[in-house]
């Protein structure tokens, strides 16, 4: 099983020394737990506790690539006298995030009962823009008009104060140029094309562990060296206490595992005074939505997909007589 015996070659000592894994295997974990740290309109930050790396990484992979959303997939160009060619505009349109709170209403187009396209698997839009009275004009997502009443529309960003931001710019037209297109949005996921990925970033990190033997450091190093040690960390994990003239850990969560401090310690014969590692049962996720779904929705959908997959795996294993445990 994973976890126990792994030796961190960079730090040179076994993870087991630290309190992260309590000497239990995966079975021994408590019930997995999610603790939400931050939640805003577009970003969720949460901790995933008491679970294995494989589960955490699966969640990460599913968030990026397997949560279905809607995106423009078919563009019919009726008129395009702009400077950009049809394919270029079509590619840009495809990347526009569409509000997909209702994705579940739709079928994937290849799994839909219809022969080519129907209201169950697609949403139609119109994009019409003419620049007649100005020298230059911006075509943005506001020019995309839905042709049905399905609530799938381009994302309109709202800033922290609740004020709408400028719509997404698609292209610019100069005088006497026009654009007339029919757009069709379809359901898909990030595996097919990145435009269906619901997230801008999905960050997953293990919580860092930083431990120093303060006594040893403050004893064996002179003040200059101690200051040097503090300055070595690019992320200001350590601080120099001016009253005590001592090195302290300021914020271990900032640690990027660059082991600059460890190297310094090794160079000064203080190998055992600094310990850098990561907790193996606690994962911090930061999921930033593109606006197609709310961030918490993305995570819960991802978890559902993960559970369905595991359930599927379990039934299949049973079917072939493998012990599902």
């Amino acid at each position: 099983m994973y976890g126990m015996e792994q030796i961190n070659t960079a730090t040179g000592f076994a993870n087991a020394k630290f309190g992260s894994s309590k000497g239990q295997g995966a079975k021994g974990f408590d019930e997995p737990e999610i603790r939400i740290l931050e939640l805003s309109k577009y970003v969720i930050k949460f901790e995933l506790l008491n679970t294995d790396l494989s589960v955490a990484n699966s969640l990460r992979r599913i968030i990026i690539a397997e949560v279905p959303t809607m995106a423009i997939d078919l563009v019919e160009v009726k008129e395009n006298t702009s400077a950009l060619h049809d394919e270029f505009i079509a590619h840009r349109l495809g990347l526009i995030p569409l509000q997909s709170f209702n994705v579940d209403q739709f079928n994937l187009s290849d799994q839909c009962a219809c022969s080519s396209m129907c209201a169950q698997c697609s949403v139609q839009f119109k994009l019409h823009a003419v620049c007649s009275d100005r020298d230059q004009m911006e075509v943005n997502t506001r020019h995309i008009q839905p042709l049905s009443d399905a609530p799938i529309i381009p994302v309109q960003y709202v800033n922290d104060k609740g004020i709408e931001e400028d719509p997404i710019l698609i292209m610019k037209l100069s005088k006497n140029q026009q654009l007339d297109m029919n757009l069709v949005a379809r359901k898909g996921n990030g595996k097919i094309h990145a435009k269906w990925s619901p997230v801008a970033t999905c960050q997953m990190r293990k919580e860092p562990i930083v431990e120093i033997d303060q006594d040893k450091i403050n004893r064996d190093l002179d003040i200059e060296k101690r200051k040097e040690f503090v300055a070595l960390c690019p992320r200001e994990v350590f601080a120099f206490n001016d009253y005590r003239n001592a090195v302290e850990i300021e914020n271990s969560d900032k640690c990027i595992q660059c082991i600059e401090c460890l190297r310094f310690a090794q160079a000064n014969n203080l190998e055992r005074a600094v310990k850098i590692a990561e907790r193996e049962d606690k994962f911090v996720f930061t999921v930033e939505s593109t606006g197609v779904l709310t961030p918490e929705d993305i995570v819960s959908r991802a978890l559902q997909i993960l559970m369905r997959k595991l359930y599927e795996l379990g039934t299949q294993m049973k079917k072939y007589g493998v012990n599902a445990d």
Binding site: I64, Q203, M204, R205, I256
Partner: peptide, 9 residues
């Protein structure tokens, strides 16, 4: 694809 590539913290 993105999810298959190495990532930083």
């Amino acid at each position: 694809r993105q999810e298959d590539l190495p990532f930083t913290r």
